[in-house]
Amino acid sequence: MAALNDADILSALKEDTERGFRLLMAKYKETVYWHIRRLVVLHADAQDASQETFVRIFRSFRQFKGECSFAVWIYRIATNEALRILRQRREGRLSLDDPEAGADLLRADGYVDFNDLEAVKLQKAILSLPTKQQLVFNLRYYNELGYDEIAAITGSTADSAKTNYHIAKEKIVKYVKSIV
């Protein structure tokens, strides 16, 4: 199947809601889920936040005015939903300032493959970062977004995104070395 074009998805949503919805999901459901999952860790939370993200996108796609790309707009909504979950946890009992909080969440989730030690180690390292650095690192490393796009999602500047990415990378290397 040819790569889906965002403009085609938007016009399909306006003309034939179900077809537009299917196209939207075909292109973005996995991207959105994995983006959220990397931030919230727990599968159940990622599922909830992904659902909310697509419900919001579906209900408000007509408000999308093209000030940024459709993908950036989707990432912003998804990021907000992930941060909403993190805020709820912060208001509850889990402290996100604790670098081991992420590792605890990994252990608590039933949908993690602990046989892949290197991948587990990398996620633990990412989860030890402050939320904004996690976000910037993930968007660059996993989603391969440009710094301008990351800046548009996080509400910062491209320079700040670039700095945050490099700081995050250094911290990850340091963290991994510390637990070898």
Binding site: R38, H43, L106, D113, D116, E118, A119, V120, Q123, Y141
Partner: peptide, 12 residues
Amino acid sequence: FNRIGKRMPYKT
């Protein structure tokens, strides 16, 4: 980083 690439331990 190149060795791990985008591999993640997460499953669904």
